[in-house]
Design a protein around this nucleic acid. Structure first.
Lengths: 192, 192
DNA sequence: ACACACATGTAATTGGTTACATGATTTC
DNA sequence: GAAATCATGTAACCAATTACATGTGTGT
């Protein structure tokens, strides 16, 4: 196994709860980590096969009660070892590309109105995200009281919330800088 | 042109300054936007050719004074139009994958020491990044006074700095939560 | 003489998304 | 009977990284 992060996501999800299908894993991702991680079926199903071939997970044909065909998997001892090794290794660093910032960086080439629209759009998205994260926080706390994983989930949530708030604060200041007729005028004002 | 962001990065860089080579563009990326964007030569050189074929940039063989072979490009009117269209379009949203957070999410599977190491590593990286960004901020302001692009560059910088600070604040609280012998004990304490 | 910065490019590989294809079960 | 959800998978495509390949000019 090289660096396919999808594999580790699957191992992690199966380490938390066994006997999940590809479909289940996708759902779990959506409802718990989607604010910092996504997976597509096109990635999940082939990876499940690979992990089986490598002996890191094993399939378990569930009680086939009429239901649509369904394949469940659980993590093996070797899978757990592999997961732990990955978890303990440093994360690779290079910051992700940020299209919003790139557009802002070149923002002078745009009419003022388009710039403001861009930032207001960013603000809107972050406001919605904030509401969603706070809701998730409430849900997690009420439905998982006592779950030993909860403290870690809450930490990822508080991380997300802290960053969304930083984005919202920043966008206020960005609007106050870009809002006036032109930036040069603002700078001139500040010097007085 | 479909969604190749590298193309727009090149157009943007050439819109700010003409007659740059692939090498120049790479350098510019490194020294100005590397905290939220990277490019490899393997991406830049083929994209330059494509942009020429599409008439969005044009090559200009520079005064070949012995120097190593060098190809400079400048943006065309059509290139400018294409850039502006892209700049005005909404950025695509899905949040990037965050390997640090994923490892934290599965953090219970790790011995306490490894967890703390993980967060301290994150803290270190962010402290270094903060210093680098603040230095960049100083540099930008002294070397580009009067540059009409400066306000936009400063906004991307203040965005980066705000987020790094949020990360540092968060990691303090994360350490204080995970630092004690085990999370359950902390929760019990808080209830008293 | 050596190292470093300048400079351009290609090939192999990876990691991932999207669209396509199929079909059963449950709920309204 | 229709729509939503459950469920699995493949094929085509794309964007990007890394390693490879090559060579010049400049400063020490």
């Amino acid at each position: 196994m090289t660096h396919n992060q999808t594999g580790f996501l699957i191992l992690g999800m199966l380490s938390i709860e066994s006997n999940r299908s590809g479909y289940d894993i996708r759902k779990a991702v959506e409802s718990s980590v989607s604010y910092f991680w996504q997976e597509s079926y096109g990635q999940i199903y082939p990876t499940l096969k690979r992990l089986v071939a490598e002996g890191l997970i094993e399939p378990r044909r569930p009680s086939t009660r009429g239901r649509p065909e369904r394949r469940e998997y659980s993590i093996t001892a070797r899978g757990r070892a592999s997961l732990q090794e990955w978890l303990a290794s440093p994360y690779r660093e290079d910051p992700p590309r940020n299209e919003f910032l790139l557009k802002l960086f070149f923002g002078r080439s745009l009419p003022r109105e388009a710039r403001l629209r861009h930032i207001r759009g960013f603000q809107d998205k972050n406001r919605h995200l904030l509401a969603a994260l706070e809701e998730l926080q409430r849900q997690a706390q009420t439905h998982n009281a006592g779950n030993p994983h909860l403290p870690f989930w809450m930490l990822t949530l508080s991380f997300g919330i802290a960053h969304v708030r930083a984005s919202l604060d920043w966008s206020e200041s960005a609007l106050s800088i870009l809002g006036p007729a032109n930036p040069a005028a603002v700078r001139a004002k500040k010097r007085k």
